[in-house]
């Protein structure tokens, strides 16, 4: 493009709306930070690292909830990433355009199911299954971090799949053909050409899905047990997965939020939880979006 485009009415109007959106986000942040100030003054960094949350004793530490969030997200990812990327390889590399679109629409419909419906399915099908399958480890119930993670995995599967499919389709067909002409078979072509070149897009798909997983509340809420102060004895072990837990978002969704409203310090702690969740999700999503938009090299 040569020269500067003149400001048109459309540009003015849409520009104004964009500024409004940014201002709203900034206002939200300012509001959250101000509202949460009392708890930061009292706890300092201890708010992030503290392992105890007893609001009657005015102790606020969110580490167990952070652990719960990370654990649930990792389980979800461990389940959904291989399945989703595997399915995307099938649709992007082996299906005809027509069939691919049909499958994609079906998968995207799955992504549109309200999460509370997933939650009900989790109670109906998953809770007992986890309890029975893990019986020899003696879980107290089927409401565990593992259950929440599996359910979340099912929920983010469509996101991972459809975004991975898009990423794979950005690799030009001529690249695959050149590899085939050199004598590579279809598997080698997928491994050395498609997956390799789509890698940033695949990582973006995973990060965007994780962003969604961290913020997801209601489905996890229904199956995770919502047990506070579950800091594991050993951080890197699978045992805590079979115990009930709490994530940042399930805590915020609980009735404690309503109780807290009357007490400035308690309320500040709840808002600070929201702020941490917001920062976490925004950070992960921002990296994902950035990777996704990074231009293809060819």
């Amino acid at each position: 493009m040569t020269g500067r485009r003149r400001w048109s009415l459309t540009k003015w109007v849409s520009g104004t709306f964009s500024v409004f959106a940014l201002l709203a986000l900034a206002a939200l942040l300012v509001l959250f930070i101000r509202q949460s100030l009392p708890v930061w003054r009292q706890e300092g960094w201890g708010f992030l690292t503290g392992k105890r949350w007893f609001y009657r004793q005015e102790e606020f530490g969110l580490a167990p909830m952070l652990h719960g969030t990370v654990a649930v997200a990792l389980v979800a990812l461990g389940l959904a990433a291989p399945l989703g990327i595997g399915a995307a390889i099938f649709t992007a590399e082996f299906l005809s355009t027509r069939l691919r679109l049909i499958v994609k629409v079906a998968i995207e419909l799955l992504a549109g199911i309200p999460s509370v419906v997933y939650g009900l399915l989790g109670i109906l099908l998953l809770r007992d299954w986890v309890y029975e399958a893990m019986e020899r480890f003696e879980p107290l119930s089927g409401d565990t971090l593992l259950t929440g993670g599996i359910l979340l995995g099912v929920m983010i599967l469509p996101t991972i799949m459809t975004l991975s499919d898009d990423a794979l389709r950005t690799v030009p067909a001529s690249q695959r053909l050149a590899a085939r002409a050199l004598g590579l078979n279809s598997t080698e072509t997928v491994l050395h050409v498609s997956l390799r070149q789509a890698l940033p897009g695949l990582v973006a798909a995973i990060l965007l899905a994780v962003g969604r997983a961290c913020g997801e509340m209601i489905a996890v809420f229904l199956v995770v047990g919502r047990q506070d102060n579950q800091w594991p004895d050993k951080l890197f072990s699978a045992k805590p997965l079979l115990e009930a837990g709490q994530t940042l978002s399930t805590k915020l969704g609980s009735s404690e939020t309503n109780i807290a409203y009357g007490d400035p310090l308690h309320w500040a702690a709840m808002v600070a939880l929201g702020l941490v969740l917001l920062a976490l999700v925004t950070f992960i999503t921002a990296i994902g979006v950035r990777l996704q938009r990074s231009p293809h090299e060819t």
């Binding site: 690249q175 053909l177 590579l184 050409v193 293809h296 060819t298």
Partner: peptide, 30 residues
């Protein structure tokens, strides 16, 4: 069969990698 029969296309198809990796792309995998 395709590995024994070399092919050059109308548009050069370069893999987004180093010159060396491009030259060895086929021979390495085969």
């Amino acid at each position: 069969l395709r590995a024994r029969i070399g092919m050059l296309f109308q548009q050069p198809v370069i893999f987004p990698a180093s010159i060396l990796a491009n030259v060895l792309f086929g021979v390495k995998r085969l």
